[in-house]
């Protein structure tokens, strides 16, 4: 356990030294400040717009972090051959995978936590600028719940990154695969709905049914973690929903990490 923690801390330290992280953080901060201006441009539901903009900024920053900082961190070890130093120590490859994953999650968690604090401050400020009537549906608990769901999503997404880095040696391929998985995960529910509607009354071909069923199991359903729209209208999800998504996120992450370590253990590192 100590080894995993040490590796996670090491990964985190390496990550925060990355200049891209600072860039992403600054862009996110500018976007958060811009919400002060943008919110005022709307007519009635300023609370909804404010929550939308803030949550979207945090989600966007998290995506940038995962795709550009975290993927590079994974690839850098092999590219720069620092992985030899790590693996020559008494540390197993499974421990390496786990340590790396925790490190990546720590980066995302810390960065997004700071953004959350900033955005909460900005929202508090904007709320004080306008009358309460514009924030009828506004709810802090919904806002924090949406943030929590977003973190659960990033837990899965980062395990996807680890999984693909364990297969491919090129960071570009990892980026491509992870991005494709993310887009598929976000849209898969829509596609399913579309299929169901399209084939209503008609017999869906066996082949299509088969593909649809497999795809639903294989790809993570990222859109389930997106409750930003509901949160912006002050609709709190019941505890059972949160529990279901928490268990889904944990199980899916463990499964992917398990597969990643299996593959990584067999892999030849030249």
């Amino acid at each position: 356990m100590n080894k995993i923690t040490a590796l996670a801390v090491l990964t985190f330290k390496e990550g925060i030294r990355d200049r891209a992280l600072a860039g992403i953080f600054i862009i996110a901060l500018i976007m958060l400040f811009a919400t002060i201006l943008f919110t005022g441009l709307f007519g009635h539901e300023l609370g909804k717009v404010l929550v939308d903009l803030n949550l979207s900024t945090i989600a966007f920053a998290g995506l940038l972090l995962t795709f550009f900082v975290n993927i590079n961190l994974m690839a850098k070890d092999i590219d720069k051959r620092t992985i030899y130093c790590v693996l020559s120590k008494p540390i197993s490859r499974t421990q390496y995978i786990l340590g790396k994953y925790l490190g990546l999650m720590l980066i995302v968690f810390v960065a997004l936590f700071f953004l959350l604090v900033f955005s909460a401050g900005i929202m508090y400020f904007v709320k004080s600028l306008y009358a309460n009537i514009y924030f009828k549906d506004f709810s802090w608990s919904c806002y924090f719940q949406a943030y929590l769901y977003e973190m659960l999503m990033f837990a899965v997404l980062n395990s996807v990154v680890i999984f693909f880095s364990s297969i491919s040696s090129s960071s570009f391929l990892t980026l491509l695969f992870s991005l494709a998985t993310y887009i598929t995960g976000q849209t898969i529910e829509e596609v399913m709905e579309f299929f169901k509607k399209e084939t209503l009354g008609k017999q869906m071909s066996e082949m299509n049914q088969w593909i649809v069923d497999i795809a639903q199991y294989v790809f993570p359903n990222f859109s389930a973690f997106d409750i930003k729209t509901l949160a912006s209208h002050g609709k709190l999800m019941p505890f059972s929903h949160t529990a279901a998504l928490l268990s889904y996120s944990v199980v899916y992450t463990i499964l992917l990490l398990f597969l990643a370590s299996l593959i990584f253990n067999k892999r030849e590192i030249n």
């Binding site: 943008f38 441009l41 709307f42 007519g43 909804k48 717009v49 929550v51 939308d52 903009l53 949550l55 979207s56 989600a59 966007f60 999503m153 993310y182 887009i183 976000q186 849209t187 829509e190 596609v191 579309f194 990222f222 859109s223 973690f225 997106d226 930003k228 729209t229 912006s232």
Partner: peptide
């Protein structure tokens, strides 16, 4: 919306704000 919805990924709320702003 059949196009916009999948295209907007997890930023549907943001897209609705943007489109309403464009509309205005």
């Amino acid at each position: 919306s059949q196009f916009i919805k999948p295209l907007s990924l997890e930023f549907e709320g943001l897209c609705s704000d943007f489109l309403l702003f464009k509309f205005m």
